[in-house]
Design a protein around this nucleic acid. Structure first.
Lengths: 291, 291
DNA sequence: TTATCCAATACGCTGTGCGTATAGTTTCGA
DNA sequence: TCGAAACTATACGCACAGCGTATTGGATAA
């Protein structure tokens, strides 16, 4: 038994076709045929009924496939472990943060977390536009920090971190900046910059539309840094979460009567198979005073 | 990553000593050292702190050991499945018999062997013309029963079964059949059928030629069944091993002064890696009263 | 200081797994 | 019905990876 035979057979089990399995395995068809034949001789019986287009795994073949898949899982774990351990002797935790959740918040948290769990290293990622908590289930990330999803997967451990309201963003020299709180109808007088990347942009526009406060976006971008730059340097305004990392010169003000808010959570895989460091980090994050 | 590395590393994890692990693994110390080194290069970090008598697994090494043990468990399960699966959950032993060794002999032996080892099934094969004990080494057959080879491979466990003389074969109605023993010179009067498939045909011809008993083959074939058919139904004669399975109507008679004989052996792979059932069968075969 | 232990390196060898070419059988479509 | 396509197995030759042996280098123990 050799590992090449393991992967060849797994591919054969999936395709039930020697030619296709060979292609998947990256070897020639006779090579795969011989490897399977050797495996069968070693195991003392056929693994597949060779029947052209109707080929089927034998009973032994099915049992062997299950065990070979376990071996592949173990191999994958080996590689996963080797990726996590590195010269530096740290376990690297991959944490993805939704781009609209300001990373500034986490600097202090992760500094304290790293002090409490000295054997780890945090690798921050930005959660892609099409990514969500399934990336945690698939193992791409160890944890995700993102707005709470409407229907999280059962296998996830989702812990709330904090809630945050949406607020006005404007230049420090903006007329609206003079007030500690602004009225919704006062926003009409100023050009609105539409933060396309905001998950809540439709809810925000709906909120104001319902109050006959028609926001007329004059500028729109999916680059949050551009949005903030434009707002910080001019008469334009925007709506953003209160805990956002804000550009220099940009201030935030609460909006009277505007109660839209969101909950930011951390999601990890639940269960005992998840490494203890990850469970520790999630626990620390849940308990942290996010202010 | 290869399975030899898996078992080497498991042994290294147990002993924390390259020399001892090499011994356990059945390879030389440099071989094991290189295999571990290759594994470490593939996984990107050391698996063991090399510290003479104080060597210890690294953190990665401990993680990898755990996964490698899972792989060993899966491998063991594979072998367990293969042992249990056979037509009717039996281990099928492929035994090839040289075509000139009559299978009739083995019926009784294998019946008793199957009684003693109930978990196996014997699959009889005819050893091909170009096949020899290398097919046992290659794993094509679990065992071969064949005349002793002049220079068997060292890796084989060759056990003698029985010796058998070459005798006259003729029709029951043949004039020579009337005698309990025939003289060599009496054979001259009858057409001789040359069994091409017989390994000893040259020795047989030489024997008679040396005694100025010139056998004039009038018919030759490599089909033993054809040879026996011709002899059983006519005036022709042949020379064949005394324990051959003989066709109906064919009888055998010893030849006075003709002492050519051969030893039939059973060959299996030697060593502890061979399944216990095969070693058991070989042992039973060697002890059997072949009469 | 010398012998022993432990692991790594150098060198040469061989067996195994590979690809290519082809054969044999079955199935499918014209 | 026939030829092409699909599917798997065999034959042949080749390259290289893993092996063992011999030896080196360093550490430890007597």
């Amino acid at each position: 038994m050799e590992l090449n035979q393991v992967s060849y057979f797994i591919n054969l089990a999936e395709t039930l076709n020697f030619t296709a399995a060979a292609r998947l395995s990256g070897v020639s068809q006779p090579s795969l045929t011989r490897a399977i034949r050797r495996l069968e001789e070693e195991l003392g019986g056929p693994l597949i009924y060779r029947d052209g287009k109707n080929s089927r795994l034998t009973g032994l073949g099915q049992d062997v496939e299950a065990e070979f898949r376990r071996m592949l899982v173990a191999m994958k774990s080996v590689r996963h472990h080797s990726e996590n351990w590195a010269m530096g002797r740290h376990r690297v935790l991959d944490v993805a943060v939704a781009p609209t959740v300001g990373p500034k918040l986490f600097t202090t948290f992760f500094e304290s977390a790293l002090a409490e769990v000295p054997s780890i290293e945090i690798k921050m990622h930005s959660l892609g536009a099409s990514e969500d908590t399934s990336e945690v289930l698939s193992g791409k990330y160890h944890a995700c920090i993102l707005p709470r999803e409407t229907r999280p997967d059962r296998k996830l451990d989702v812990r709330p971190l904090f809630r945050e309201r949406f607020v006005l963003g404007c230049s420090a020299k903006h007329p609206l900046a003079a007030s500690d709180i602004v009225r919704g109808e006062d926003l009409l007088e100023f050009p609105f910059v539409d933060r396309l990347k905001c998950e809540f942009r439709e809810q925000i526009l709906d909120h104001f539309a319902r109050r006959e406060v028609l926001m007329r976006p004059r500028f729109r971008s999916d680059r949050d840094d551009w949005v903030q730059r434009v707002v910080a340097e001019g008469e334009a305004i925007c709506i953003l979460p209160e805990r956002s990392a804000t550009a220099q010169g940009l201030v935030t003000r609460p909006i009277d009567g505007f109660v839209l808010e969101r909950e930011v959570v951390i999601a990890t895989v639940s269960g005992s198979t998840v490494p203890v460091e990850i469970r520790k980090i999630a626990q620390l994050a849940a308990r942290y005073a996010w202010n």
